[in-house]
């Protein structure tokens, strides 16, 4: 695989997403809205030093979920629309291999989804500190989570969604999209319930999640070998 070709595709996808202002605004709006609406009650309701654990748990869970939500939002445009419009056929006739196209798209969407996840992290930290009596900063394990686990998970989610978009027909993709959207929305909606279990996220959870993300990435990367041009072309509407 050529790194140059992958970065060319990634750069174009980045540019394409940024230029689609409506989608960018929807992404940023959801990230900001969930950050504000979930962080304030979590910080206000908890008293004393327990707020530190709640803050770290919140970032651990919410930033990851928002990252996956952005992955879902943008991969639809990059993989699904390109297939629906038939542009993918032209791309498949260029000197790029199918895996280079897939990889380039995964890299491009991961960058933008991760940047929005980072923006959410900063916002959560600022809001938490406004409503907290003590200084709240992410623990080293959470920082590791933000800088390594979250992008790895986002990439895995995009890879999986992209694989699905390439593999499945339009109707199956629409059903998959709706199911994923409902699942993510509920996962975000019940954030408070998930993080208020009276525990603190440690290196163990972060480490396990990293292993899961890497395994997922490896699995999806392996699965792309089974994607064929014919499968993509014959599932275009």
């Amino acid at each position: 695989m050529s790194r140059n070709k992958i970065f060319t595709v990634a750069k174009k996808e980045l540019k394409g997403i940024i230029k689609t202002r409506s989608q960018m605004l929807v992404g940023i709006f959801f990230a900001l809205w969930f950050s504000v609406m979930i962080t304030i009650p979590v910080v206000i309701m908890v008293e004393g030093s327990a707020v530190v654990d709640h803050f770290n748990n919140l970032i651990f869970y919410l930033v990851l979920m928002l990252g996956v939500f952005m992955a879902y939002l943008f991969s639809g445009k990059v993989f699904f629309e390109e297939k629906r419009e038939g542009i993918i056929e032209t791309l498949l006739c260029t000197p790029l291999s199918l895996r280079e196209i897939w990889s380039g798209k995964v890299v491009g969407v991961t960058i933008i989804a991760y940047l929005i996840a980072l923006l959410a992290t900063i916002l959560i930290t600022i809001i938490a500190n406004i409503f907290s009596a003590i200084l709240l900063l992410p623990s080293p394990a959470i920082l590791f989570h933000i800088f390594l686990v979250v992008p790895a998970f986002i990439a895995a989610a995009i890879g999986l969604l992209g694989f699905g978009h390439f593999l499945l027909g339009m109707r199956e993709n629409q059903i998959l999209n709706i199911s994923i959207f409902i699942a993510i929305f509920f996962a975000l909606f019940f954030t408070k319930n998930v993080i208020s279990g009276g525990y603190a996220v440690s290196w163990v959870e972060v480490g396990v999640l990293l292993i899961v993300a890497v395994l997922l990435l490896a699995l999806i990367s392996y699965l792309t070998r089974y994607l064929s041009k014919e499968r993509i072309v014959t599932t275009i509407p």
Binding site: K12, K15, G16, K19, T20, E85, G86, I87, E89, T90, L91, C93
Partner: peptide, 13 residues
């Protein structure tokens, strides 16, 4: 070089 039924162009660019 190819020109299929779809022009292979990105409308947002």
């Amino acid at each position: 070089g190819i020109l299929l039924e779809n022009d292979g162009l990105y409308e947002g660019l």
